[in-house]
Amino acid sequence: MDTTTARSITRSDAVGLWLFMAAGAIIAVWGIMAAVLRIIEIAPNRDVSVAAEFAGTPADAPIGPGGSSVEVALDQAVLTVPALPGASWAALIAQQVIAATTIGVVVVCLLMLCWAVMRNQVFSGRNTALVAVAGITGTIGFAAVPFFGNMAANGAFTRLSDGDFDNVVMSVDLMPLFFLAFVAAMAATVFTVGDRLRRDTEGLV
């Protein structure tokens, strides 16, 4: 007896899963298309816009009375560079490829998981593998995307300042990264234990 097929999902469960799958497909298409369009924009390596992090760099902003300049601490800005150095250009392309790949892999894994649940198959080795792959891919992608973005930004700083402006800032937020890794590990553990309990229960029947 397969305990995972002992009870069918309800109609409301099925509707929720279908909505989740539709939303996932839209997210995947949107994310991949955004990455492709960004690559098309970057590919000629002319007048490239790059998001950059600053370490509280002072700058003037027209926010005073009558539009007068007020000094502010700059944390983020978009730099437009005539052309990026080769390594920075490649890093920016890699950032988009990794972002698209991460979104695609995670969404496909979750869609396959939802499809299995709709067929009343919750705990299984296959579903455990899907959860693990989604979690690992998401965690690596979450760290890699800003890392390559920082590489591109540093190249933009070098090109604009001829190397005179030192602003190497690595902007990977570790707390969300640790939280994501924890959630992924917890989900994989739950599915692993659930699959083992299912097999143990089948052995008793």
Rank of each mutant, 00 (worst) to 15 (best):
A99H: 12
V105M: 09
T102R: 02
V117W: 12
I98L: 12
A116P: 06
V107R: 01
I93W: 13
A90V: 11
A99N: 13
V108I: 15
L92C: 00
W89H: 15
L110M: 08
I93S: 10
G104Q: 11
A91P: 03
W89V: 07
C114R: 02
A91N: 07
S88Y: 01
A99R: 12
C114Q: 06
I103C: 12
A90L: 13
L111D: 10
A116S: 15
A90H: 09
C109E: 04
A91M: 08
A90C: 08
L113N: 01
Q96L: 06
A100M: 06
A91T: 07
V107C: 06
A100C: 07
V106C: 07
V108M: 10
L110H: 00
A100P: 02
C109L: 07
S88W: 00
I98P: 06
M112I: 05
W89P: 07
A99V: 08
I98T: 10
T102K: 01
A99C: 09
Q95G: 10
L111F: 09
A99Y: 14
T101F: 15
M112K: 06
I103A: 09
V107T: 08
A99Q: 13
V108R: 04
I98H: 09
V117Q: 09
G104N: 09
V105R: 06
A99F: 15
V106S: 00
S88P: 03
W89Y: 13
I93F: 13
W115I: 12
C109W: 03
V108L: 14
S88G: 12
A99W: 15
I103V: 15
C114P: 04
A90Y: 08
I93M: 14
S88I: 02
C114K: 01
V107L: 06
A99E: 09
V105T: 13
V117A: 13
Q96H: 11
A90E: 10
L110C: 04
M112Y: 02
I93N: 11
A91Y: 04
T102D: 02
Q95Y: 10
I98D: 07
L113R: 00
G104K: 07
I98F: 13
Q96E: 14
L111A: 05
M112T: 03
I103N: 07
V107G: 01
A90I: 11
W115N: 13
L92M: 04
M112W: 04
A90M: 12
V107P: 02
C109T: 04
Q95R: 13
G104D: 10
C109A: 10
V97A: 09
A94C: 10
V105C: 10
V105A: 09
L92T: 00
V97M: 06
I103H: 04
A116K: 11
L92G: 00
V106K: 00
C114E: 08
S88C: 07
L110T: 01
M112D: 05
V105E: 07
V107I: 14
L113E: 02
T101R: 06
W115K: 12
W89F: 14
A99K: 12
V117I: 15
L113Y: 01
Q96T: 03
G104F: 11
G104R: 08
T102E: 03
L111N: 04
W115E: 14
